[in-house]
Amino acid sequence: MFYDNLQQPQLGKKSSSAKPAIFMDCGIHAREWISPAFCQWFVREALSTYGTDTQMTSLLNQMDVFVLPVFNIDGYDYTHKRNRMWRKTRSKKSGSSCIGADPNRNFDAGWCTIGASSNPCSDTYCGSRPESEIEVQNVANFIRNNKSIIKAYITIHSYSQLLLFPYSYTFELAATHSELLKVAEGASAALRSLYGTRYTSGPGAATIYPAAGGSDDWAYDLGVKYSYTFELRDTGRYGFLLPESQIKPTCEETMLAVKYIADYVQKNLY
């Protein structure tokens, strides 16, 4: 029923032809540990509830979900072994002793114009050029190669309890702003229904801060209409060091929001 191609991490009912799809990634920033936890939770829930959960069963019958559990694997590994608060990739730059770039400033979306740094030592270093980081290049190539079927892009971050959508590299509103906001508010309401956790929805630049080179802006400009960034729990008490006791409730409530978006996309394919 389900299949997992190592080149295309993929969940869905087997089909003789390509189905519309959702691409979801976690762990683009190394220190945001709750993010990879959610992608793993999503895969487990998808596999274990197929056939019993009507919404999940319908989704995976009609669509595929590409899941990238840890986008920035080298950085994530480094946070476990050396520096828990590391954010960037671990690439080396000629002429600099500083390591890595911010993968969420490295996409070709208003690249390095605002909210990003050209200093290789900065946590928001945009890289030497768009897609200079191999992780970004591989994800961008995959989405470009499958853009005819990818109908939604969801990227999971922490923290701040926000559900963001384009744009972050400009304060101009996206062409489909009203619909993006409607879906985000519906997803936030679904999330809040479980534990009362409140999320704020809105375009990235106005809701959190301006930031060029983000993956959601890039995907949207490529033509992926439903493009969203989650900033998971909390709002600052624990920040990136969210305690283990909050992993399960965070994943449970986030699942409701992601399923809401997926259900909307499934019913409004374009």
Rank of each mutant, 00 (worst) to 15 (best):
E172Q: 13
F42N: 00
Y3Q: 11
R237D: 02
V70D: 01
S132Q: 02
W86D: 02
I28L: 08
A206C: 09
T229F: 06
A212N: 06
L173T: 05
K147L: 15
K81H: 07
T176D: 13
Y195N: 14
K147P: 13
D74H: 11
S117M: 11
W111S: 01
Q246V: 02
M255S: 05
N268P: 05
A211F: 07
S118Q: 13
S215G: 11
L60W: 15
T250P: 01
P103L: 08
F171Q: 14
I114R: 14
G110K: 09
V136I: 06
Y220C: 00
R105Q: 05
M85C: 08
F240D: 01
S122R: 11
D25C: 10
D74L: 15
N146D: 09
P210W: 07
L180F: 05
E179W: 07
A30E: 02
K151N: 03
A109P: 03
R237A: 06
A174I: 10
A109E: 00
P166V: 08
G202F: 11
A257R: 06
T176I: 13
I261D: 00
I154E: 00
G236F: 04
S193C: 08
A187E: 01
I73Y: 11
A109V: 00
A262I: 01
P120M: 03
G115C: 09
R144M: 14
F71M: 15
L163I: 12
A206D: 14
L163D: 01
G75K: 14
L256F: 03
G236Y: 00
P69W: 14
T235E: 07
M255P: 00
M85K: 10
E185K: 08
F23P: 03
L269T: 07
R237I: 02
A187V: 00
W218G: 00
F2N: 15
A18R: 13
F240H: 09
A219H: 10
R198M: 10
L180W: 06
S132N: 03
H177K: 12
P9G: 13
E185P: 01
T170S: 15
Y228K: 05
I143S: 04
S132V: 06
A174E: 10
K13V: 15
G214C: 15
